[in-house]
Computed example of a mutant assay.
Amino acid sequence: MTEQIYKKQDKLAKLIEQHTGRDGVHETTIPSLFFIRQSTDIGPRHKVYKPSLCIVVQGVKENLLGIEQFRYGPSDYLVTSVDLPVTGQVMEASAEVPYLAIKLEFTPHQIIEVIRDMGIRVGPKENAKRAMFVSRIEVPLLEAVIRLARLLDNPEDIPVLASLVTKEILYRVLQGQHGVTLEQMAIEGSSTNQVKDVIEHIMKNYDKSIRIEELAEIANMSESSLHRHFKEVTTMSPIQFQKQLRLQEARHLLLSESTDATDVAFRVGYESPSQFSREYSRMFGFPPIEDIKRLRMEYDQRING
């Protein structure tokens, strides 16, 4: 990492600490901008990543998408171009040097606007590409992110300038090593764009039975093409993707509500509670009730010191 990048990472770290001060994911007054601080390397966390840019300025994080690992730290940035169920874990963090990161969520419409307004030459429609990637950080991208974060100190500027700086940030990503991945996500009729439509359908109907023929029709592909392109984008089949969504939502329901595992199994779309319990244990390492007790105990220990 060059000296110039190091200095800018240090500026960004100071801004994150200034606006957080405690562990957690912190919303800001800038739409879709979040600051993340974590002082312990707690266990893996399962969640659905929205289309977003993540820049780590201290520490190291590892994401698991299916069976594929994405490790990134201060010299990298990570982009997720469609909704994806991910297992993420901070690998390096301490009270003295906490994990610090920013996350900027974006929409396909914003990508289309940048492609149009900045005059980026859109390449031909290509085969589907992995919807998560890690690239090396560059000075112009860091400078734009710092300018966006500094708007928090001048809130009267946010309504006018935040969208402009966000557009520059997305432009820098589009100009980067994997920018074509974002292009393909936004280009109408590209295989990545068609898979995105299928993902949106599964997200809305995760608790219902899905038919591959119906998904293929949504994508305007043959069933075999859909399987191939869907796996290239997500590392999973549509059924595996749906299963991860169901299990993540089941865990959320068990944590947030006082309800039993059988009820939750039915609510997220399982017809067999025993199958639900097996698949839950396979994904999270423990049966549902034991897992929730463990998570609550861990939470209490962190809160009480």
Results as ranks from 00 to 15, higher is better:
119 G>K: 14
286 F>N: 05
162 A>M: 11
256 S>N: 15
112 I>Y: 02
270 Y>C: 06
250 A>M: 13
47 K>M: 12
225 S>F: 11
134 V>Q: 08
265 A>C: 13
22 R>K: 14
3 E>K: 15
243 K>S: 15
213 E>D: 08
47 K>Y: 13
16 I>G: 02
237 S>M: 11
19 H>C: 03
267 R>K: 11
186 A>Q: 06
128 A>I: 13
1 M>Y: 06
148 L>R: 11
116 R>A: 14
5 I>G: 01
258 S>K: 14
79 V>P: 04
229 H>W: 04
169 I>Y: 08
142 L>R: 11
163 S>W: 02
91 M>D: 00
285 G>A: 03
219 A>Y: 06
88 G>S: 15
223 E>L: 06
229 H>T: 01
291 D>M: 09
203 M>G: 07
14 K>Q: 14
64 L>M: 10
104 L>Q: 04
228 R>Y: 09
266 F>V: 01
293 K>N: 05
94 S>H: 07
169 I>P: 03
108 P>K: 13
179 G>F: 00
35 F>W: 03
63 N>Q: 04
212 I>K: 13
145 V>Y: 07
130 R>T: 11
204 K>Q: 12
275 Q>V: 08
85 P>Q: 06
232 E>L: 14
181 T>R: 14
30 I>T: 06
205 N>P: 03
170 L>N: 00
114 V>M: 15
188 E>G: 04
160 V>S: 09
82 V>Y: 03
4 Q>L: 15
182 L>F: 05
134 V>K: 02
31 P>Q: 06
143 E>V: 06
119 G>T: 10
24 G>L: 14
294 R>W: 00
30 I>C: 12
259 T>S: 04
122 V>G: 04
208 K>G: 00
200 E>D: 12
94 S>W: 10
130 R>C: 13
228 R>G: 02
196 K>L: 14
254 L>I: 09
304 N>R: 10
29 T>A: 11
122 V>I: 10
209 S>D: 10
277 S>R: 05
119 G>S: 13
269 G>Y: 08
261 A>D: 09
232 E>K: 15
2 T>A: 05
107 T>H: 05
209 S>N: 09
6 Y>I: 04
282 R>Y: 02
304 N>G: 06
7 K>V: 08
301 Q>R: 11
304 N>V: 10
200 E>V: 08
47 K>R: 12
115 I>R: 11
252 H>M: 07
57 V>P: 00
239 I>N: 01
289 I>M: 08
42 I>H: 06
279 E>D: 12
182 L>A: 14
46 H>W: 11
267 R>A: 13
174 L>R: 03
211 R>V: 06
256 S>Y: 10
135 S>K: 07
103 K>S: 15
242 Q>M: 08
4 Q>S: 09
200 E>P: 02
33 L>E: 01
162 A>T: 06
261 A>S: 15
11 K>L: 12
134 V>N: 07
227 H>S: 11
137 I>F: 01
103 K>D: 11
78 L>E: 00
4 Q>P: 01
82 V>S: 05
116 R>D: 06
138 E>N: 11
117 D>E: 10
246 R>C: 13
13 A>R: 10
245 L>T: 01
135 S>Q: 10
241 F>H: 03
213 E>R: 10
272 S>Y: 09
109 H>Q: 08
133 F>K: 00
176 G>H: 01
